[in-house]
Design a protein around this nucleic acid. Sequence first.
DNA 1: CTATTTGCAAATGGTTTGCAGGATG
DNA 2: CATCCTGCAAACCATTTGCAAATAG
Lengths: 156, 156
Amino acid sequence: VNHSASTSAAFAAPEQWLRHHQLRVTDRRKALISALCRASRPLTLQELHRQLKNASCDFATVFRFVTLLEKQKLVETHHWDDGLVRYEIIEDHHHHHHYLICRECQTVKEIDECTVSRLENHLQKTCGYTDLSHKLEFSGTCPSCQKKRPNRPKPR
Amino acid sequence: VNHSASTSAAFAAPEQWLRHHQLRVTDRRKALISALCRASRPLTLQELHRQLKNASCDFATVFRFVTLLEKQKLVETHHWDDGLVRYEIIEDHHHHHHYLICRECQTVKEIDECTVSRLENHLQKTCGYTDLSHKLEFSGTCPSCQKKRPNRPKPR
DNA sequence: CTATTTGCAAATGGTTTGCAGGATG
DNA sequence: CATCCTGCAAACCATTTGCAAATAG
């Protein structure tokens, strides 16, 4: 997966990224941005908080900062079927991620292809909706979980 | 949207539907099945509970019954971006729904087309995942909300 | 020096469970 | 009449907020 200019920049230099987005620079925030960029998949607040325990960052701080980023549309939220909300920092040139999630181990693979934009245009024309966007997520059992699970019944 | 044999049956006769699925028949359950079938879109537990207030059904009962249906794979769960979980009764011959949701008024339209199955096959072959399924959801601003909103900035 | 951020602790709100009485098969 | 369902009340847990001290600009 290739990172865009913005995210690479944030990864390399959280400070610059924060300034660029007119946000105050603090240790907690640098650590948070760094963790969000390091992540290879959307993170829950808990996961994010856990990653910062060396930076001793309060959970409320994680919550408030991520919420702020969300309002500014600098993170994207994901609501997967386990009911947990996950956050992902948005890359300027690549807003759009689709995932393939293993039902058993929760491993996440990113998918480049998206054949759905055509459908979006179609909907705009036929239904009159504007500002269209979509979410597409696949789930299945990954090869390694298939092996680990000899004869058990299919999950959920 | 055409209802399948199963759901039509449930709609017409919740009792039969419950028996057919080896579930005990009670007034609450008949009312719940009926409400789920009457719904033109996935419902939250709150919404479902509200619909049953004339049947005076405790919230815990709603919760436990829907949870039971979920375990038996008789309802499908949806996790939309407002963070609320919604439940939809599954029609035997038409498991598969895709929605177009208005960001402003939350109106829901159902979409028949789904061009994604091809991608699913592709993923199975290239990534080795099995038991693949997917969720595809569109959101946008519906025509009537576009009118109601003359010059306001775009929502979320 | 002013406005924002942070930790702490408490409030909130949706979800989930224990238990005793009631209904079903 | 054994089993399962239900209402009630309490527990749970992730999220959200109030407030006073700390920090950025």
